[in-house]
Design a protein around this nucleic acid. Structure first.
Lengths: 346, 346
DNA sequence: CTGAAAGCGCTAACAT
DNA sequence: ATGTTAGCGCTTTCAG
């Protein structure tokens, strides 16, 4: 591969002049610029990224750490970040944690070795202990996305998870549902904790006594949600509605319904968090609390690049994006009145 | 950030010894290894990737170039590659071409700047002119994936596209379909060219006269396939079956059907290439020619790492993976006999 | 406006 | 078995 030295020789100038032309970092005469650019073109020279990074102390690399790129929500987020980064002259590393904190730490270490200039992190845990581990492993501008982490000074961009939970429960209660099951995520992540807390709060607000058996954690995993759905449907007193706290878990619940030969929304209403690209190809079409993925991702990468460029320390600002309830065919009023369980009615 | 020098001082050894310990590149006494490792741990030292890459001439970086990470087929491919690479001590850059050759060239340039050790390339064009452009832009071990490119010496891993096309057409013809529409991809990519050629061949083999108007190219874009579907359905003599040559185009066709208020498979049969993760949530469930994404990706990255490690030049070997016809509810026998168009019948 | 030279952090000869 | 040293290709003072 050609080096900057070859270009300098070819153009008959000094190495530093070539560098100045490439980076426009110092005034160079028009004549010399032309000669250097011609030399670059004929030789086919391309600067050596690692050498640049080593010498300048700036890798112009951004790390993106997310649970699973095959989840359409995250792949869209990655896509948006890539596009914005490329425009700004940054390259991106995208890595999957698989929701495993240990793996997250390993990825963080790789990012550090590459001396990334900044990171967008969708963390696997939200507790303070994990926050301390992160603080020890991260020494670059970072923006937390999707989930919060206690004890970190970073900016956080999330959905308004509490509102998302309340929106769905309110909707189901309005339709007359009282036995509402919740397929939850993984305790310890704010995405789970806040959504679930909001659900419980909403249920209580509506005077519904909480049935712990109707809440099943499925780790945000589609297959576990399927199994949770099967368990719920096999009950003597199955719920009249299921609320799944993520997009893939909603699919799992839907599969359980289909496997049990039940019909939605006749036998059971279904609601999820996170929308799908082509809702009309599902049957029935899903009622969801939609997450503005693109806007959130654009905001997050914008905030990160801003922090990197300005060299400002993180402000620790939390930005919540409003969820939107989209009512489709999967949720409907309870068809058959539940038998009263009040002793007084016997 | 701590450097190797800090570690050497702390451990009371030379920096080359530290390097030897880290890379196990030279024999070092147990005692010294322990001292160095202790120093690394207490200082929290992590090697500088760029410095390593610069000095060793090995970036241990792999580039993955694909059309669109939000397409579930490609996100799965990226996922598999990432996992295998990490195990082998490589990091991956994943970039989207958006099916745009110019953009592909720009990405190739970025990959070159990073001095990637190898690439998996899902190219946007298959013609020899594009092959020449690639040859001028690529100077590292590369494996072509999904589509072939004329005039390149690289190994190629693809679906057996001709078989995929024939499988679907044979299936539809067996069901009695004669007016079969094809929503094709983008001319100039082997994924399109070979699949379409096989379809035409199969139709002729069955004695069906080709109707050019029933073949619409939709650039592998979901929305364009939707529009193509609408156009086909609006005809005075609509087809009795549509075969979409990719997963997202199948969804586009399905949406067109729904938008037109038609029922599948009663009014029209639908077949696609590439399976979905949860086929049961669609209604009807789609008959597809399935692509073994995981096996193909594993094979491709294995071949690439092999070529890198062995320092062998590319063998130019073409490996075809067998597609599998999965018959589900979206394809059925033509219900109503088409009126005969043979003049003799008038 | 241009050029000479130092050195980013690391590896790999080569000496010892 | 361990230490010394010369660069990898680039940016960035600092002189001219």
């Amino acid at each position: 591969m050609a080096t900057i030295k070859d270009v300098a020789i070819k153009a008959g100038v000094a190495i530093s002049t070539v560098s100045a032309v490439i980076n426009r970092s110092a005034p160079v005469s028009e004549d010399v610029i032309a000669r250097v650019e011609a030399a670059i073109a004929t030789i086919g020279y391309l600067p050596h990224g690692a050498a640049k990074a080593l010498r300048s102390g700036n890798s112009r690399l951004i790390g993106v750490i997310l649970p699973d790129i095959t989840n359409p929500f995250f792949s869209m987020v990655a896509r948006v970040i890539e596009t914005v980064c490329m425009k700004a002259g940054y390259m991106t590393f995208v890595y999957n944690t698989d929701e495993d904190p240990e793996h997250e730490m390993r990825i963080l270490q790789m990012m550090r070795m590459q001396r990334v200039a900044g990171m967008i992190l969708i963390s696997t845990r939200s507790d303070a202990a994990h926050g301390r581990r992160l603080m020890a492993a991260i020494n670059v501008p970072t923006v937390l996305f999707g989930s919060n982490v206690e004890g970190t000074p970073y900016d956080v961009i999330t959905l308004d998870d509490r509102k998302a939970g309340a929106l769905a429960i309110d909707h189901l209660v309005e339709l007359g549902h009282r036995r509402i099951a919740i397929i939850a995520g993984r305790p310890g992540v704010s995405t789970h904790d806040e959504r679930l807390a909001a659900c419980i709060e909403a249920l209580q607000r509506h005077g519904i006594v909480l049935d712990e058996d109707l809440i099943i954690a499925a780790d945000f995993v589609q297959q576990l949600a399927f199994e949770a759905g099967q368990k719920l449907l096999a009950r003597a007193d199955p719920p009249t509605a299921i609320f799944a706290l993520s997009n893939l878990m909603l699919i799992g619940a839907m599969r359980a319904l289909l496997a049990a030969g039940k019909t939605c929304p006749r036998d059971l209403s279904l609601v999820g968090i996170g929308d799908f690209d082509w809702p009309e190809i599902m049957s029935p079409q899903m009622t969801v609390v939609a997450t503005p993925a693109v806007a959130m991702a654009e905001f997050a990468i914008g905030a990160l690049l801003d922090e990197i460029d300005s060299k400002r320390p993180p402000a620790g600002k939390r930005t919540l994006f409003a969820p939107e309830l989209i009512i489709r065919g999967s949720s409907a009023a309870v068809s058959i009145e539940e038998p009263l369980r009040d002793p007084l009615a016997i």
